[in-house]
Design a protein around this nucleic acid. Structure first.
Lengths: 283, 283
DNA sequence: CGCCAGATTGACACGGCTCAAGCGGTGTGG
DNA sequence: CCACACCGCTTGAGCCGTGTCAATCTGGCG
């Protein structure tokens, strides 16, 4: 990683418009400055750099200002599971706020810009600045929520549905930080990365991608995603972006991107029925 | 749910020994009293009661003092995914701290005791009491960590491994709150519940359970789990309880329960090799 | 031009799902 | 106290989605 002086990149630091970190929604200029005040460092990191290493102590949180990162766990026999993808504005390793040793690694998927916030300083800032504390809470809870959706997807959806769901989620998150280009965006993941994120093999990711393409729903090629039929894609996988808690920009989306309302589904679900669908809870 | 006066159950409220909520590790008597001070209610809930309903507004957090609860999401076509199991001491719906509407429901799996903490009051308490704020942070982060492991399990482990892993996790969590009986514990889940938690069908859960039993590793019968060979069970599924962050009682476990050290695996892993094991990240 | 990582394809195996029947407890009403 | 009903557990047979293995293709880069 190339260390840089903070001020050299001051102009590239997050602003509500350019890089909307989950945090920023609630932060005004004063709070934002306070947050920047505790940054120890801004670094340019190239693809493949490890920001955090599973099991090694870590003294600071990393916030992505630009580029992509992946949080992953290696199991003892070498299987890999990617538990989160970070896009600009995301905190890569929130757990570092409470734990010195993390049980995952974080690696850059593309070149990017990273700020580091030393745990200690952030801690004291949170104690004195309730707005920032709240913003961080909202990050933590949203992460939880995303993780929950992630697990549900892996556990209960078919390969195609999982892929579609991930592509939908990423579009919304990227649009929220101004990194989407209409219904298209850059996705610097190999099919193997996608496989590890979705609990599939890369071979099957490839085939599922082709299936989605043959339905004229999405094209994923040359590290770029183009969604051709958002509505159908959302229906196919039962996507509803509510869990992302992008309230502040929801208005924008309900205008631009047709959202699927889970409470009042329009027409019959197009999922194939499965017998292991659990009965609802009585009472 | 039967509403009760708080004081009627004062003696049954959490103490470090009896019911160790994730919180309690760090809390002294004063902080604990402060926390109890903001409780609005203690209720006896019977199995099947919904504490929280997906999509409905919720004004208070629920902490389980006794019994079991499950957090689950229903997908539009009726598939169900259980994203967390709560045991005594756990907060069932942490998200309620930040969001008014949750994207999951919480249901009691057994009869139990539940305390309710109104969001507002807890909010102000956290602002004034940093110890409690920290304790809640540690809850939130640990949840994240558990969710991550959950997803990795579903995505990358076989049915047997998943089951084994869950049973191991539950033993450690229950032991931490004094609800385990050596290597045995009560587990008020049907096989269908287990299936929804593990991303399987109940039929396959049944068969996997039999497989584990035939290896003399665990018996799960009549809502009771008995682990016969902890060491082998841990090795079978690559379980390492570090992610549960039960530091304070780890000492106890390293004495009683042989823990599997992931850094220095003893002997070759007994997993069947799989070709989709991802290459480690270079650099 | 040659190399290499990643994408693609094909043939095949298998884990886990589906469907369906039967079993055993337990609670309830006659 | 029995009969019935219901729920959850068990078992079997067959199928299909996804993994496995391995070869080939492609595009970017030195």
């Amino acid at each position: 990683m190339t260390p840089l002086r903070v001020h050299e990149h001051a102009t590239r630091l997050p602003t509500p418009e350019a890089t909307r970190l989950w945090l920023s929604a609630a932060l005004d200029t004063i709070d934002r400055d306070a947050l920047l005040g505790v940054c120890s460092d801004v670094r340019m990191a190239s693809a493949g750099t490890n920001l955090v290493r599973q099991g090694s102590p870590s003294e600071a949180l990393h916030i992505l200002l630009d580029g992509w990162a992946a949080r992953y766990t290696l199991m003892t026999d070498g299987r890999r599971s990617i538990s989160a993808l970070s896009v600009p504005g995301d905190i890569c390793d929130l757990d570092a706020l409470g734990f010195v040793q993390l049980d995952y690694s974080v690696t850059m998927l593309s070149a990017g810009l990273v700020v580091m916030l030393p745990r200690e300083r952030l801690d004291t800032l949170m104690a004195s600045n309730p707005t920032i504390a709240k913003a961080l809470w909202s990050c933590a809870l949203t992460e939880n929520t995303i993780l929950t959706a992630w697990a549900a997807s892996i556990g209960r959806r078919s390969a195609q549905e999982r892929l579609a769901h991930l592509l939908c989620e990423l579009l919304m998150r990227l649009a929220a930080v101004g990194k989407a280009d209409g219904y298209s965006y850059d996705l610097p993941l190999t099919q193997e990365h996608l496989a590890d994120a979705l609990g599939l093999t890369s071979v099957h990711v490839n085939r599922s991608l082709q299936a989605l393409r043959s339905m004229s729903l999405v094209t994923v090629q040359h590290r770029r995603v183009a969604i051709h039929d958002w509505t159908t894609l959302c229906k196919l996988c039962g996507f509803d972006g509510g869990y992302l808690h992008l309230e502040t920009i929801d208005a924008m989306f309900t205008r631009d991107l047709p959202s699927v309302d889970p409470q009042a589904p329009s027409g019959p679900p197009i999922f194939r029925a499965r017998s292991h669908v659990s009965r609802f809870h009585r009472r």
